[in-house]
Amino acid sequence: MDYFLLVISAVFINNIVLVQYLGTCPFLGTSKSTDVALGMGGAVIFVIGMSVALTWPIQKAILEPFGLGYLQTIVFILVIASLVQFVEMFLKKLLPPLYRALGLYLPLITTNCAVLGSAILVQKNGYGLAKSVVFGLATGVGFTLALVIISSIRERFDISPIPQVFRGVPIALITAGLMSLAFLAFKGMAS
């Protein structure tokens, strides 16, 4: 039940993009078509899960015992960057089909603040390892959900009579605002 609530909270109530404003750049950059959105979402779920599982032990085993908590940022980003690089090479060699599906998006993820953000958040919230990984995966799912929804809306923009000055990013932002409004309602239900 605990985990269920955790997942619901991470996917809907505290949606990483629409409520916590993390990962907005890729949210706008890769949401022009649903295919791209799905690819990006898959890659994000994968990388968040991996990076949380990797940074948690480092925090607990190295940083905290030695009192080096202030190095969290630099260590985490190092680990995530190396991880992404490693995963890219790994997939390219051993799982070419998966690489073709996700490879394009992997380099983007290093600078996706949703990844670093959730790695830091699980430490802030003080979750255990299993809980952290579940939270990480659920966060990725929330990101994917938001991305897929907005991309399917944006696909329809092509044929909508949008004023010229709103075309492109402005209308996408306003749409995201309205979606965010909808997601805020989950928060209202939860409280």
């Binding site: 260590v75 190092l78 680990v79 190396s82 690089q85 490693f86 090479m89 790994f90 390219k92 060699k93 051993l94």
Partner: peptide, 18 residues
Amino acid sequence: LSLSAALLLAAASRIFAV
């Protein structure tokens, strides 16, 4: 950490070289 990451990646780039 940087060194191990660098070594790991260097090794990986050898092993997984395409």
